[in-house]
Amino acid sequence: MKNSKTNVESLYSWIDEITTTIQEYVNETYLDSLIYAQECIFHCSPTINHDEQLTHKLETLLQTTSLADYTVEEIRKANQLAILKGMKGSTQAQHMMTPETIALIIAYLSNKLMDEKKEIRIFDPASGTGNLLTTVFSQLSQDKEAYASEVDSTLIQLGVWNANLQKQQIEFFHQDSLQPFLLDPVDLVVADLPVGYYPDDVRASRFELQAKEGHSYAHHLFMEQSLKYTVDGGYLIFVIPEFLFESDQADQLKNFLHEHAHIVGLLGLPDTAFQTDKQKKSILILQKKGHHTTTPKQPLLVKMPSFSNTNAMGDILGQINNWFQTYKKRS
């Protein structure tokens, strides 16, 4: 039996070969060719009438491997490698993916927060390629309804096929995530927040966190929008820039969060995971205030060690487990 790493690598090689074969015949980027490759893999056949030579090549390639021979995790990881390859050649700043290790930490925290619920509704308002949401989705054992929103047409197509290949039922909204949604409030929001200014000042003026002057911060507005679509007592897990509470609009954000949410935890991600200080990120856990919610006596405050230091990671996870036991008992 092949080990999991070999399985992931062999599946990635197959996806990559199909993608590069398509790219040779169509004048598209690797990511756009990957979207069509995923579609062909899902349907087990070419879905568009190209010239006979490409169609024949694709039919031959598609017969060499079957997704049925792989686990959902192997499919997700192989797909992730193909997307990462495409993103290396991309010049667009928003074409980034939440790293695997960070997605798994968020999945672990989601499990801790949701372990007493039998049914869960999850929403990612900045879903990108869907890697964060599909990782969390696959790690939660309960009955789930999942929703995702993404404005970028390339990223949302990658996200849709990502979910389809993993046989995960996720409903996608192709829209600006700061516009209203036809969505009932959810139990859990996960998001790797897009950082920067939001250009639509008219739309931003409808938010409490609009800037006093100039453009508003998109990452602030995303937090407010996410709280709006969370049930009372529900949880939100955000990947945030480390400077979030030190920016020029930080006091406004702190006051807003104090009014609407409890800060449950803040996990500093390891410095080794980022190339520069400006890129450093943390994980923020919030609970939306409700009639029966209370602020934790001691929030979960952790600085994560290097992901490669397995002993230190084991110690930190033990501390986090102990903290969650105390947190759950409080209610």
Rank of each mutant, 00 (worst) to 15 (best):
S4W: 09
V8E: 03
D16A: 06
I22P: 01
L34I: 12
I35H: 07
A37L: 04
F42W: 15
H43F: 15
S45M: 15
T47A: 08
I48H: 12
H50A: 09
Q53S: 07
E59H: 10
N79V: 00
N79Y: 06
Q80R: 14
A82R: 00
I83E: 00
H95Y: 12
Y108L: 12
S110C: 01
M114Y: 04
K118W: 14
I122Y: 09
S127F: 09
L132E: 07
V136W: 00
E145K: 14
Y147N: 04
A148S: 05
S149M: 04
T154I: 15
T154Q: 13
L158F: 13
L158Y: 03
V160W: 06
E171A: 13
F173I: 01
H174L: 15
H174Y: 13
Q175L: 08
Q175P: 03
P185E: 00
V186W: 06
L188A: 09
A191Q: 06
V195K: 04
G196P: 08
Y198T: 02
P199T: 08
S205C: 03
F207I: 10
Q210I: 05
M223P: 01
E224W: 12
K228N: 01
Y229T: 02
G233Y: 03
F238N: 02
F243M: 06
E246V: 01
D248C: 09
D251I: 09
A261D: 00
L266Q: 04
G268N: 06
F274D: 04
S282L: 00
Q287L: 12
K289V: 02
T295P: 07
P305F: 01
S308A: 14
S308V: 12
N309S: 13
D315I: 13
Q319A: 11
N321I: 03
Y327I: 10
S331I: 15
